[in-house]
Every structure is written in C-alpha cells, then in structure tokens.
Amino acid sequence: MGGRQVPAARRLLAETLDGVRPEHEQLSAARSVVAELGAPERLLELIAELASGEGDPEGCARLSYRHVLGFDKLLLVDGGPHHMLRAHLWHPGRGAAGKEDIHNHRSPLASCVVRGRLAMELYAPRGDGGIEADRYQESLADGSADWLLEPTGPARLHLTQVAEYAAGSTYALPARTLHRAWCDTAEPTVTLFLETGNGRRRHTDVFTGAGPHPGAVPKVPLGVEDYLSELDALAELLRRS
C-alpha cells in the first residue's frame, strides 16, 4: 500500500495553484501551500515517505544537488512545468562559489522556514551610489544542467530591506525580486521552497561583488541512493527539532 502524503501534496499543489491568475494572487496561494505543507509533523511525514522510496525517487534525484549558493536542494514533488516543491538544507558557515550573490528567480516563489533561522536582504537597481557589483545573466546549458554565467557589465544596487525569518515564518517573492539569503544560526536551517507560476523566465540575474565568476558552474545531480540517504538524514534532523 502506497503512502498518503505524496499524492496529498500533489493534490494540494494542483487544486490551490493551477490556473492563470495575477502574480500577487499566485504568491498568496503559494504562501498558504508552503505554510500547510511546512507544518513540522506533516513535512516530516512527507519526507519520511519519500525516503522510503515513494513518489519518483529517480526523477527527483536527477533534479537534486548541492546548490552554488551553499545549500542542499532536494526535490520533493515535481509538479510538471508549473510547480516544484523542494526542501532546502542550509549549513552554517559552509563556503560556496556563489554564497554572497544577489539574484532573482525564473518563477515566483514561496518558502516556509521549518527549522532554524534564515536571514535575507532585498535589493533594487540604482543609478548611482549604493553597492558596486558585477552583473551576470544566468541560464542553463543546452544538453546539461550546468549554470552558464554571461557577464553583462557593472551595476549598482540599493539595499531596500533586511529581514530574519524564524521557524514557522513564511515569505513569498515575485520572480524578479533581487535578494540574497543565508543560514543565520549555528545549527542547520531547513526551508520548504516552492517555485510556481505559468511561465518561467529563460534566465536570471546575478550580481556579485566578490570578483569574476567562472563562465560555467557544474550542477552535479545526486544519485538515487544518495538522494534517499539525504532525505532520511533530513527526516532525522526534523525529528530532533
């Protein structure tokens, strides 16, 4: 007998988010979904079910990896072209090539902090003053999932907001919102992350003040055994929370 949490999550995503609507309504709906699925007991049941092999472990493993921004990205439910539900595991102090990068996304997003605390800064372009940065256009390589970074010149950004999100908090951002986030505790932080929407941008914008980036950054997917092992370890981490 199969588990109940995976099909229930799929139904909730489809029933709440399918259909064309203004972005602000999509964001509000997405935020309600991650709040519901990110409730600690429900998320633990979902991850434990997936760790036992339910769902699509092969397909999800292919889209799970160590992200260039410094966290582990584990796909939980692939909702086709419109909805991707992931768990992000943020490790305090972990170095990564792009951990200081300011960026936006291909699709609107919503996130729930399940464990730990996340710090975030929001930015906007600025004609003068502000922060100097190098701008890149990020896209995915044809025939692979590697990140391609094309330099597009210097830029200036203005810090518009600083926020902290403790366990139980949710937030939602339009696709083009420039931001950066990091684990703000000495213990790992876990977030439930949902990208949604009826159209994905072909590229994102990346700004960095840390010097030149390589033109391509490999994206190495997890094998199925590693993916299931990561889910099992994540479930144990949530049990201890």
Rank of each mutant, 00 (worst) to 15 (best):
Met1Tyr: 15
Met1Lys: 14
Gln5Ser: 06
Val6Pro: 06
Leu13Pro: 00
Ala14Gly: 02
Thr16Ser: 15
Gly19Met: 15
Pro22Thr: 03
Gln26Ser: 11
Ala29Gln: 11
Ser32Leu: 14
Val33Glu: 02
Leu37Pro: 08
Gly38Ser: 04
Pro40Gly: 09
Leu44Pro: 01
Leu44His: 15
Ala48Pro: 07
Glu49Pro: 11
Leu50Tyr: 07
Ala51Phe: 00
Ala51Asn: 03
Gly53Thr: 06
Gly53Val: 02
Gly53Met: 01
Gly55Thr: 03
Pro57Arg: 06
Pro57Phe: 04
Pro57His: 04
Glu58Asp: 10
Cys60Gly: 08
Ala61His: 01
Ala61Ser: 08
Arg62Ile: 05
Arg62Leu: 09
Asp72Ile: 04
Asp72Thr: 07
Asp72Val: 04
Leu75Arg: 09
Asp78Ala: 07
Asp78Thr: 07
Asp78Tyr: 03
Gly80Thr: 10
Pro81Glu: 07
Leu85Glu: 05
Ala87Met: 05
Pro92His: 02
Ala97Asn: 01
Ala97Ser: 14
Gly98Asp: 09
Glu100Gln: 14
Asp101Cys: 10
Asp101His: 08
Asp101Val: 12
Val113Gly: 02
Val113Ser: 02
Val114Ser: 00
Arg115Val: 07
Gly116Phe: 02
Leu118His: 02
Gly129Gln: 07
Gly129Met: 03
Tyr136Trp: 05
Tyr136Glu: 12
Gln137Val: 13
Gln137Glu: 12
Glu138Asn: 06
Glu138Ala: 12
Ser139Phe: 08
Ala141Val: 01
Ala141Pro: 03
Ala145Lys: 13
Ala145Asp: 15
Asp146Leu: 03
Leu148Asn: 09
Glu150Met: 12
Glu150Leu: 11
Ala155Glu: 05
Leu157Phe: 04
His158Lys: 12
Leu159Gly: 03
Thr160Ala: 10
Gln161Val: 13
Thr177His: 01
Leu178Trp: 03
Leu178His: 06
Trp182Val: 05
Asp184Trp: 03
Pro188Cys: 06
Gly197Gln: 03
His203Ile: 01
His203Tyr: 09
Thr204Glu: 07
Phe207Lys: 00
Pro218Ala: 10
Lys219His: 07
Pro221Arg: 08
Leu222His: 13
Leu228Ala: 08
Ser229Leu: 12
Leu231Ala: 00
Asp232Val: 01
Glu236Met: 06
Leu237Ser: 00
